[in-house]
Design a protein around this nucleic acid. Structure first.
Lengths: 171, 171
DNA sequence: TCCATTATGTCAGCCCTGTTGACATATCTC
DNA sequence: GAGATATGTCAACAGGGCTGACATAATGGA
């Protein structure tokens, strides 16, 4: 029972000229590369009873000290309930600290503690090591090209297009 | 209470010469790019009541017709229990079909049905579109450089280094 | 032919992390 | 003082990882 491709797709193929279909290579490479990339951190995090969500919070708080809850939510694009679950654990275990905002005391400004900074650093070192091993096996200029590609893959606004530009990553 | 960096890290910094620390830009770009990349598919999958796990199975079965369970497990690096949960749903809903192996009848060879092929194609088109929009905004040669970088990021064996080479992605 | 091994299925339960919805609190701003 | 804003919290649910244990069928070698 042979199948007929939807007309839209057939046209797309015909128009593209090139191979039978799309960017399968990059699609699969992104999957494999990202999985192995986060796998490095996963193993270390398990020693502390943390998961990826904790990692992301620690990372951004470490990178942008004084971040507010709202800014963090905007960076991560998760709900406040999801964030609060892991953030509370990070605060209770002393990896993250909070202070009331200066001008607006409703805000909680987030900072990593010394322990938090150390762990965030160790995690970054792990991931940096993989990146540098990879780049060392690539031609010069790969780093800039890869960074440009990845940046161009990002939605500057949310997927709905109705969100304020993401702070800390404007280019 | 100021913190002292572990000697190892201090040495690494001093040796590297360059900025205070690691590849924060690429680390964060990978996170944002991958999140938005899979977000495209997530929205379409929700229409079918499927998740990312279903997507991955459909994708690889569509790309490598006749794949066995063992090969799929090796590609995805998840447990058979995790795989079976989503695979069963894909088979029950008629997106994936299975036939007994030719030489070894214990094996289940997996194929996408016409519906499955159509959905896999639609998902690939979504992701390809993002990739092509991104590449269109980059300099020529970016595609090859990005592919090279991502490929170099992958563990050819498992993270433990004790797994047979991943089929279908040797270079 | 019998048996160990292999390929796969399945049940049960747990964990992490995302979601929605509802409601509480403190603070700011007008 | 009143409404808007920043945040916290409780409860419930879903998706998709995991482990452990056990079942079945087919293979392949002794």
């Amino acid at each position: 029972m042979e199948m007929r491709l939807p007309d839209v797709l057939v046209q797309a193929d015909a128009a593209a000229g090139e191979p039978p279909l799309p960017e399968y290579d990059l699609i699969e490479l992104l999957f494999f590369a990202y999985r192995d990339f986060v796998g490095d951190a996963d193993r270390l995090l398990a020693d502390y009873g943390f998961g990826r969500a904790h990692h992301r919070v620690m990372h951004f708080v470490s990178r942008r000290p004084g971040l507010t809850i709202a800014e963090l939510l905007d960076l991560l694009r998760i709900t406040k309930q999801s964030l609060n679950r892991v953030l509370k654990e990070l605060i209770d275990t002393g990896f993250v600290e909070q202070r009331a905002g200066l001008s607006d005391r409703r805000q909680r400004l987030l900072f990593v503690s010394p322990r938090g900074r150390a762990l965030a650093l160790e995690l970054s070192e792990l991931q940096s090591a993989r990146i540098n091993r990879a780049l060392a096996r690539c031609e010069p200029g790969t780093r800039a090209a890869a960074a440009g590609f990845l940046a161009a893959m990002i939605d500057p606004m949310g997927p709905d297009g109705s969100r304020p530009p993401r702070r800390g990553l404007e280019r």
